[in-house]
Each structure stands twice: as structure tokens, then as C-alpha cells.
Design a binder for these strands. Structure first.
Lengths: 236, 236
DNA sequence: TACTTATTTTTTGCACACAACAATTTTTTA
DNA sequence: TAAAAAATTGTTGTGTGCAAAAAATAAGTA
């Protein structure tokens, strides 16, 4: 009967992870022990262990005597992100191109298919999770225990950033996302060809694209409206 | 009375960390919950939380239903180490040169003094811990939450590696260590001058020196002995 | 009304007990 | 004697109760 408890523990762990990455649980949100333990039918002891583990992985922050919170995302972390991401992702893709095993390449292709499907019909959360899975596989390929901790932290916030800075109404943004998908294809090709130089360059391109996406969000195209009068672009 | 328990918990946490870094607890060593909880007068609940946290930081490995072990160091991890270290340390020192605040520079100088003192009269463990503290401060200076997880993992194994691959009898090794100390001085100067290019280069030099140290250990100078007869170099 | 201060309520941290699991040893059987 | 099955032992995982701390609320004073 304890078997069921173990499942619930794993279930809770997965649920928290995806909820945090998809912003279902917002940065800074309180994670109440007793409420969660009620909801998942787990006692507080294993629950707290899960929270500790997630804290180690960077999903939540633990405050002494004041419970757990979903880890914050400030302006500082956004800056840190774009400083560190090109380097770490570049290194990961370079190593991936060196080390990838054939079955891992298959995994990567499968992840990319899921991502493409999510682009066509999925929700924002599904898209972000599929993208996350794609990069997770590249991390498995790189297989360097010293790179992975930072890489995984980057992946968490990459998912949250793309959830934050995306408006499906914006044509340029949709364009960018399909370009990202094309870059994924190029990454797969570079890895399969063991072309580490190309892989590293693609990493940089890929994260520059992410930065562009954020700039589109922060600095939207000016509204096509004149002071005092509403104009409309006339068809030619 | 609960206050004392909290102290013991922090004490246990610190003790485990240093014991693992100084190889007082060897890689792969079993960490028995009940034995540790006896020794530190803590119940198993907080003890397990400490172990979970240390697992997140890379000090220990957790195996399902089979307890905790000190994290392993294999040939693979050594290779991973020297692949990742120059890059991460380079990035950390570059950012440190950009961001370091004056009081942090003071911290770094203080750490270097402790390191020099340990070189003169300290044990191997004291030397390794002082060196670790020096680099820890550079990590604080860099102040990038995406770099730090990997950096801290590197520091753990850097300490363990220098504990493993050092023989104070070997003149060349002693020479290398004092060169490392000189590099620390140069790093301080580069950071103080905000010279990020020099800082990044020094990171590479510093880790090449570590690699040399290991090569000295793995491939020692041949014994000065001829087959069938013992010769001695005659003074000129 | 604003500001302390006291009291209540909520929530977290620790200890212990028991259940589940893994490994080892003993017993049984061929 | 050897292999398989069963019992034993040691160790980990979970549930619950209680104590301590923090937060929220109420009461009293300026």
C-alpha cells in the first residue's frame, strides 16, 4: 500500500516541475506544505523532501521557518540568463556534436517532432515543455556532470521566459518561433554530422533569437495611430 | 531545546561538506543514516533533509531505497572536469573582473593570505579548503545564478582532485603550488584593474597548471636506477 | 485614527513509531 | 552437495504527534 505513496511522491514532483516551468505556479508563489499534502494525499515528511530536492535543482527557494516559494525571476536573472546562456548552450551543443550516440539522435528527432506538433496545435505550455525536452536531450548527449547543473537551471528559466514573452497574436513572434524550429532542425543536422563548430554557432544563433523575441515583447512596434486621429493603412 | 537541534543540523551540514572535500569521507563511501543521526544527536528526519540538500549540490548521490553515498570521482569525471573547468572558471573570472565590489576584493585578498599561510604550515586539507575559499569568493564576485551551480560543483571536485594528486615530497609539485599562489596574486590584480581579458586568460593558465600537476602524479619522473646496478648521480 | 502590545491562529521543524524494501543467512529439498 | 526457498536482519521511506516559530488578529493606549 506504500507503493501508492511512492507514486504520489513522483507525481507531485513532476507536477510541481511542470507547473513551475509553465508558470502555472508563478515565480514567488507560496508553496504551502499542508495544502499540498492534502491535495496529493501525502504526509508532510516526503513532501518536504521533494521541496528540498526541487530547491537544489533551482525550482524553488527555501526560507528558514517560512516555507517554500517558487524561485523568483527578476530583471537581474534575465540579464544573467542572456550572459550565461550562449556560453553554456554553446558548450553543451559542442559536446553533444562530439559525443551523441545514434539512439540519442533518434530521441532528439522525436523531441523535435513533438515540438513541431505543439507549434501547430498545442498550447503555450505544451510548446514550452516540448522545447524544453528538445534541449534536455542535447544535455544528455553532452553528458558532462559539471555543465549539467547550470544547463538545467537555464532550461527552467528558458521555459518560463518563453511562457512570459510570447504573444501568439504577434506575427513577428510567430515567425520567430518557426525560425527557432528551423534552427532545431539545423542543430540535429550538425550533431548528426558531428560538426561541433556549426553546433556551437547554432547555439549562439538560437539564443540571439530568444533575445530578439524578448525585445519584441519589451519594445513592441508602435501603434499605428496618430495623435488626435485614427488612421488605417489603406490596401494598395 | 529545539535551538540546539538546529545548530547540530548546521554543524552536520558543514562537517559533511568539508569531510567530503578533504577526502576524509572518500568518494563512494556509504553514509549510514542511523549512524550519523546517533553521532550528531539528530533524528533521522532533519538528517535526511541535509542529505537531500547535499545531493542537490553534488556532494552526495542518493540511491532509491539504498541510502546515500559520497559522490564518485571516476576517470570520466576527471575528463569532464578538465573540459568544463577552463570555460566556467574563465567566465566566472571575466564576470568577477567586471562586477567585483571593493569589499569583495578585500575578501579575496584575505582568502589569498590564508592560502599562503596554509602553504607554509598547513595540512593538505587546510591548503585545499583555503584554495577553495579563494575561488568561492570569485564566484560571489561573478554573481550569476546560472553559472554558480556548475561552478560550485567544479569547486567540490577541484578540492578533491588537489587532495588526491599532491605529494609534498615532489619538488616539482611544490614548485607548481607556489606558481598557483602567484597566479592567485595575478588574478587579484586583474580583477582590481577590471581587466577581464587578463582574468579570463589567467583562468586558463590556472587550470592548465592543475592539469600539469595531475600529469606529474600519473606519470612520475623515472627512477634513477639502472638494471642490475644502483647508480648515484655524482656531484660535479 | 494610528500605533503598540497581547493573544490567537497558522505553519514549520523535529522526533519517534511503524511499514516497506534489500541483502544476507539459514533452512529445506532435490 | 548444490540450488532454491524462506526467514532474518539491517536500512530506508512514510505517517503522525507535538513543540517552536511566524503571521494574523484583537485589544488597549496615545
Amino acid at each position: 500500500m506504500k507503493d501508492a505513496a511512492k507514486n504520489r511522491k513522483a507525481e507531485l514532483y513532476d507536477w510541481l516541475k511542470t507547473a513551475i516551468m509553465t508558470l502555472d505556479l508563478r515565480p514567488g508563489a507560496d508553496l504551502d506544505e499542508s495544502r499540498l499534502s492534502d491535495e496529493f494525499q501525502l504526509s508532510r515528511t516526503p513532501l518536504r523532501e521533494v521541496l528540498r530536492q526541487l530547491a537544489g535543482e533551482g525550482y524553488v527557494d527555501l526560507r528558514e521557518n517560512r516555507g517554500a516559494r517558487v524561485s523568483e525571476m527578476s530583471h537581474m536573472t534575465l540579464r544573467d540568463f542572456f550572459l550565461a546562456a550562449p556560453m553554456i548552450y554553446g558548450a553543451v551543443l559542442q559536446l553533444a556534436a562530439q559525443n551523441a550516440r545514434p539512439e540519442q539522435v533518434d530521441d532528439l528527432k522525436a523531441a523535435q517532432e513533438v515540438f513541431k506538433a505543439a507549434l501547430r496545435s498545442g498550447s503555450g505550455a505544451e510548446r514550452a515543455m516540448a522545447n524544453n525536452r528538445f534541449h534536455e536531450v542535447t544535455g544528455e548527449m553532452a553528458d558532462n556532470i559539471y555543465l549539467l547543473p547550470s544547463f538545467q537551471r537555464l532550461l527552467i528559466d528558458h521555459a518560463r521566459i518563453s511562457m512570459t514573452f510570447y504573444r501568439p497574436q504577434d506575427a513577428q513572434m510567430v515567425e520567430n518561433v518557426s525560425e527557432a524550429s528551423a534552427q532545431h532542425d539545423a542543430i540535429i543536422a550538425a550533431i548528426e554530422a558531428r560538426d561541433e563548430v556549426a553546433a556551437a554557432q547554432l547555439a549562439i544563433d538560437h539564443w540571439n533569437l530568444s533575445r530578439d523575441q524578448i525585445e519584441l515583447f519589451v519594445m513592441p512596434a508602435g501603434l499605428d495611430v496618430q495623435l488626435g486621429s485614427v488612421t488605417r493603412k489603406t490596401p494598395a
